[in-house]
Amino acid sequence: MNLAQMLFYVMSFIALASAVFVAATKNLVRSIFMFFITLFALAGLYVLALADFVAVTQIVIYVGGILVLILFAFMLSGRETLNAMALQQKQFISIGKLPAFLLAALFLIVLLNMIIKVDANNLEWVKKSIESKNDIPVNAAMTEDIGVGLMTRYLLPFEAISILLMLALVGAAHLSRKGRGA
């Protein structure tokens, strides 16, 4: 087992263990901080997959942005709301949790199905793109490739996402505004 593989297993273990802790713990704040470790381990896995730009973006957006905003919302909400959340029904199986259970089970089946069926070492489309030289070598300039890709081939989805974000921004501004009489 070489160093890269060892790192992969260590980081996957950290990611999985911290994710389980995030879902299982009763202490909400600690689960948010533990989520930070999950995200960091995921960033490490991205680096191992040679996607360093994605790894850094993961840290900028999720750790620096979203996680801090979650904490912010958490700290702004009153103690009563938090207590009510902590006092949720304790039993593991109950009728209220049925939809969540169903969703999780279905997702697990889909994932297992995919993992068993896929043959990761010789995928059809990977072979094809290597044959037609449509692949990026390890030492290529990733950032430039991503930038050029976003502005040419994936321009439409990129613009669609920016319109979506713009709508969210306008909506948030509208909601937080003190309405005149509204």
């Binding site: 840290i59 620096g64 950032t143």
Partner: peptide, 25 residues
């Protein structure tokens, strides 16, 4: 020698916020 050096620093600095929130809470 990172070819993402600046972006990396920008990302790493934002973690400090998390530490400060952790200290405060």
């Amino acid at each position: 020698k990172l070819n993402l050096g600046l972006y990396y620093i920008f990302a790493i600095i934002s973690i400090e916020t998390l530490g400060i929130l952790m200290a405060g809470w």
